[in-house]
Amino acid sequence: MKYISVPTSQDAMQRLDFDESIEGDLIEVTINDELFQAIINTGIISQLNQFIEVNIDEFEDEKIVGIHDLTMAKSILAQLSPSDFANASLLVSQIDKAIEYDTGVFFYF
């Protein structure tokens, strides 16, 4: 399974770094292989990797942290066509939550 996690606080983000998360620390969504492929097919992951200088990929753990990078990610996602945006809506939602909590988005693919 693939997960996109958002810590709900700075403390939760620190616990996540040490794999010591407690209940309520994370907002997690699970992505099946079909949805993962649909998101990849939008090209959005390649754009995030290029412009934010991350390496979101299958079998990789990666994160986008900091308001600047999260805002940039949201801006990149806003450029998707409506049909591609529908496929990436979980990603958009997680980025919005990370901005709200001033934490980050953690990808466990």
Rank of each mutant, 00 (worst) to 15 (best):
D57L: 01
I76G: 01
G66H: 08
I22R: 14
I22C: 11
E53P: 05
F59A: 13
E23T: 12
G66I: 09
D33G: 02
N55G: 09
I22T: 12
N41Q: 13
N32S: 09
P82F: 02
I52P: 00
I67V: 14
E53A: 11
Q50S: 15
A73Y: 00
N49Q: 00
E58P: 09
N55T: 11
V65I: 13
A86W: 09
L77T: 00
Q37I: 08
G24V: 03
L35P: 00
L48W: 14
F36S: 14
I27S: 07
G66Y: 07
G24D: 04
I40L: 04
S83H: 07
L91I: 02
I52E: 01
A86M: 11
D25N: 03
V92M: 13
D19N: 12
D25H: 08
Q94N: 09
E58G: 11
S93I: 10
L90W: 03
A88N: 03
L80R: 02
D96M: 08
D25L: 05
E34M: 12
Q50P: 05
G43M: 04
I45K: 06
I31N: 00
M72P: 08
F85I: 03
N49E: 03
D19Y: 14
T30F: 04
F59T: 12
I39E: 01
I39F: 04
I56R: 02
I99W: 05
G24R: 00
T71K: 15
K74C: 06
F85E: 05
Q50D: 11
E34R: 14
I99M: 10
V65R: 04
E28S: 15
D84K: 10
F59M: 14
K97S: 07
L77N: 00
N41W: 06
G66S: 08
D69Q: 11
I22L: 13
D96G: 07
E53C: 12
L77A: 04
Q50C: 12
Q94D: 05
Q94I: 01
L91N: 00
T30Q: 07
E23R: 11
I40E: 06
E60A: 10
Q50E: 11
E58Q: 13
A88G: 02
A73E: 00
